[in-house]
Nucleic acid binder design. Structure first.
Lengths: 258, 258
DNA sequence: ATTGGATTGTTGTATGATGACTTTTAGCCG
DNA sequence: CGGCTAAAAGTCATCATACAACAATCCAAT
């Protein structure tokens, strides 16, 4: 309780052994060392390979199984799951559990916002449309002045949600947005990389498409524009995670010089 | 390996102990026995409570942690994480009393389910697809026997949400669905009017379109089918409300003009 | 009253053993 | 020689115990 205002500095204080093993096996699976449907080494072999106890191996396999990457058959062995769609498989393989939660929440947010845009295109009134435009131009202004655009971006999305005339869309956005930061808003590790001018220009370009669709009352186009915007954001988010994990993996490798 | 092509019919293949524990703790958390941010019983206490070894408890906690429901801090204990459902707890409690609000919630649910169907079409695995089909045929069976189809309908929607491989979709569906049931499910005022055979036949027809789209892996078609299904349900819901309101009296209208 | 260490409680990891289930192999019979 | 059965080996699931690492608490000394 010493300092609540300070941002939590410990991004990754201590990777548990099982997490390390999970990451290692994930990487192997992603690299295709073991093909879907085939058997992983036995727990005993993995114990020797990684130099940890069977407890750790079992916990790691349990986590992988929880993510659906592998499945254990008693008496037979642990097998790589057959069906994982390539997209989702790579996605899940790339990220740790905590990050995957953020991405999952973001995905729910995506659903809400897409429909929100469609409804806004249909139901908006003049004042609401003006609010959306105002947020758009505010973003533009901040961008020109090189000021942080996060708030304006958030305002843009909230204005759209508000234009549905369904208060729960706004509430939903607030609740979901607070947890899974939409990647365009400030984030612990989004220092300069994300704030680059070209990055924000891209955001604004996507915003414009959304805005045009809404003002023209085309629900379908609005949904598609919002979908494009958010999936792109999702992609950017994922890339950042990946970059972070590469960094993290390298640091682990450095400490494990054996 | 006698029948590899056939879907595994044994619903309860092997209830691992850890899974049982996971389910039990999940239920407790969902029931609100332990509030977010608070500490769970220690592993030792859980060992005694469930009568299993600490190995099983640890595996169960690891799975819960993988789902983001709890997080363990070494030396301190295992704590319940702040969760979306809890944030929605108060929110969901507020709504549901008024029908207009229920309609708004239903609309949010529509957004979630539409996207859910699209993701299910892309990401589903064999077991999940089988679960969806099973729910569909269960609906069919109940329909032929003139039994209430509500549970099967709900199972159908939950199976689709589950097939997204994003646990938050299921959770969202549960939270939103409990209050504003989609009118096809049992509801206090859905006595016979809603249960009419032709009505349920229509539902099942819409379900079939969704099912086909998902099994064929067409995300766009799945979304459209789900959208059609839910907007139709929305419409039916409105009609029922209107009928009820007319049946009651016009006095209500006086207080809430507009 | 504050600081510092000792104590206790809790999770993380290691190790060994046993049961249950699956696969493979060996053996038996036709 | 071929097919079926039973034994054996391999593997995961669970249990039990012990120690290490870490966190919160308490208590004594200053």
């Amino acid at each position: 309780m010493a300092s609540d205002s300070a941002v939590d500095l410990r991004v990754e204080r201590k990777p548990k052994l099982s997490e390390t093993v999970v990451a290692a096996i994930r990487k192997q699976l992603q690299a295709g060392d073991i093909l879907p449907g085939h058997k992983l080494p036995t727990e005993g072999q993995l114990t020797e390979t990684f130099g940890v106890s069977r407890t750790v191996i079992r916990e790691a396999l349990a986590k992988l199984a929880a993510d659906g990457l592998v499945e254990a058959r008693q008496g037979a062995g642990v097998f790589v799951t057959e069906h994982i769609s390539t997209m989702f498989g790579a996605l899940a393989a790339d990220m740790g559990s905590k990050d995957s939660i953020a991405l999952n929440v973001l995905e729910v947010r995506l659903a809400v916002e897409i429909e929100s845009a469609g409804l806004a295109a249909i139901r908006r009134n003049a004042a609401q449309e003006a609010a959306i435009q105002e947020a758009f131009f505010e973003f533009e202004r901040l961008l020109l002045n090189s000021e942080p655009t996060g708030p304006a971006d958030l305002a843009f999305h909230r204005a759209i949600a508000s234009a549905t005339n369904n208060p729960f869309y706004v509430e939903m956005l607030d609740v979901l947005g607070r947890r899974a930061i939409p990647c365009d808003v400030t984030s612990p590790w989004s220092t300069e990389l994300v704030q680059s001018d070209s990055y924000q220009r891209g955001l604004q370009r996507e915003h414009l498409v959304i805005l045009n669709a809404i003002t023209s009352g085309d629900a379908e186009a609005a949904r598609e524009a919002m979908r494009a915007h958010l999936t792109a954001s999702q992609q950017r988010y994922r890339e950042r995670l990946h970059a972070r994990q590469v960094f993290y993996a390298d640091s682990v490798r450095a400490s494990e010089t054996e």
